[in-house]
Design a protein around this nucleic acid. Sequence first.
RNA 1: GCUGGAGUAGCUCAGUCGGUAGAGCACAUCCUUGGUAAGGAUGAGGUCACGGGUUCAAUUCCCGUCUCCAGCUCCA
Length: 646
Amino acid sequence: MADDNIKNAQIKITFPDGSSKEYPAGITPLEVAESIGPRLASDALAARIDGRMIDLNAPLNENTELAILTFDLDEGKKIYWHSTSHIMAEAVKKLFPNIKVAIGPAIDEGFYYDFDKETPFTPEDLEKIESEMQKIIEADLPFCREEMSKDDALKYFGEQDENYKLELIEEIEDEAISLYTQGNFTDFCRGPHIPSTGKIKAFKLTSIAGAYWRGDEKNAMLQRIYGVSFPKKAMLDDFLERMEEAKKRDHRKLGPQLELFAIDNEVGAGLVLWLPKGAIMRNIIEDFWKEAHKLFGYELVYSPHIARLELWETSGHTQFYTENMYQPMDIDEMKYQIKPMNCPFHMAIYTSRMRSYRELPIRWAELGTVYRYERSGVLHGLMRVRGFTQDDAHIFCTPDQLLDEIKGVIDITLYLLHAFGFHEYDVYLSTRPEKFVGTLEGWEMATKALRQALEDKKMSFKIDPGEGVFYGPKIDIKIKDALGRSWQCTTIQVDFNLPERFDLKYMGKDGEMHQPITIHRALLGSLERFFGVLIEHYAGNFPVWLAPVQAIILPITENQYDYAKDLYKRLKGEGIRVELDDRSEKVDYKIRDAETNKIPYMLIVGKREEEANNISIRKHLVGEQGTQTLEEWVKKVKEEIEKKGG
RNA sequence: GCUGGAGUAGCUCAGUCGGUAGAGCACAUCCUUGGUAAGGAUGAGGUCACGGGUUCAAUUCCCGUCUCCAGCUCCA
């Protein structure tokens, strides 16, 4: 009878758009969705009430805010993928009954499930698993939630020898835990899940990889299967197409193809050779970078590639950074170390003489090449290498100047990134880790300054708690590449450690010695990584100001060679990076070649152009642009270069 | 470093159940002088990643190493 009372009661449900409506208590989110429309009801995957996610069949007994989660929402996607991982686990358990299951979460694009299996999965296994999954999906099995006491759950999974589940359950503090069952598979899971397996309309298992239990290399290696799923076949097709497109943009493919860089086994893994065309681009990037730094009040410095080991002991690198440092070498009975960082040199420049508060802030920048040992498995094209050039700088300032200096760094960062066509990135503020140097007040002050600077610059950011470096809090700006991976380029770090270790001082207005604050920052990060990101960002179709070859002259027949050579000389004289294709080939062929080489402008000259003393312009990926005189075109393209367009 | 996969011409890839290899593109020479994404002929080009082992014989089978790829872990 008590139930009836609840059922007769009315509750108020508020929707995301702010509207609200009365419903009988005990109604489920699915029923609410049905009352709104059949389309929503069929798209509904789960629900969110007051910030908590629940199943569609969970009764609502109190006034609440309610959002119906569909695949269009990130939360909906995650639930959808997570449910697919359960389906995959069921299929795997059916095919390989002795396997043990570990965890199977949703990730940014899809899901995975880790299994403990003696022998790794094969591609054939994946096909079998896929068809088993298809059966489960076609059976449209409901996902059923069940609550159990912790003890019962331990007993339940203990009987099945699911030791990974036991380990997870043991760590749960709640007394009751939830289990989800679909078909013959029951998993310990917080949920929620989609109503039934039939909601999965298209899926694909994408790859197999080893992964350590709980991501710790001391633990057992598990077999991980990655997959992705969608409510429409077309969405899966789009996804696969996007992966293909990403592959085409891969800088490791485009780099050698466009003759930008090479990595040669004989030279060594993770060591980059900049080919002439890549080197031209690097020069342009460096020149622009130097100009920008002068503009923003930096001075440029240089420092050596090696230094006595004592310097690295002073800086603390031998203590905190040995794993990434190469072996020191013996010179004149002293140890010298190839540099993994530039910082100590800039400290040494600071201490090269007495400093006054009048000099601060000091901003010293250097394109400093460093060498770091990276484990072989982490090397990745230009993105992760063993020798690279950081666009490094150190700012020495007083506490009063800190906020303005950080804002200044953000300004120059955005100035640079915008010029290179980057307008989207994720910003993180990393706070104090467990192990740290310096005082709590110092950390507090610096973190506040970093936060304040971001807020003043109206940049949205996320907090990365405890992810700061031991020597100070930092701001990281990450650029996303074509494969969806985030690459950290910009890092702005406050450093309490080095000023202390190098005993940096300045004479204050008060006649006393004070210690300056140091900001360590790299904006592009490293030229290598940034170049890799740049290649993928533009898919090799660089804007004119960056393109290694800006234009190519394509004479139609030999009769125009003299005219073409004259044009070539004049363009060279104008500082345009131009080539002349005087091979005895048809224009079609030369055009195709120029297009595949992604040269921004093709200047086609035949009999007509020579007679009219003009050129026919074709733009890469766009097509014919009509004719212009050389002067007109040069003026236009110079403007384009000037404003870094294209 | 770990797990799995891979390494054949500059590139993309065939192939050899053990008898030292082939195509297309690119390259060179010649023919062709063609108007907006591939004209034709001929030619050159390979220690089949490297080092061992088995064998009359290894690019092929076995072991090891290196590198690359997908991840894990760690970072600019």
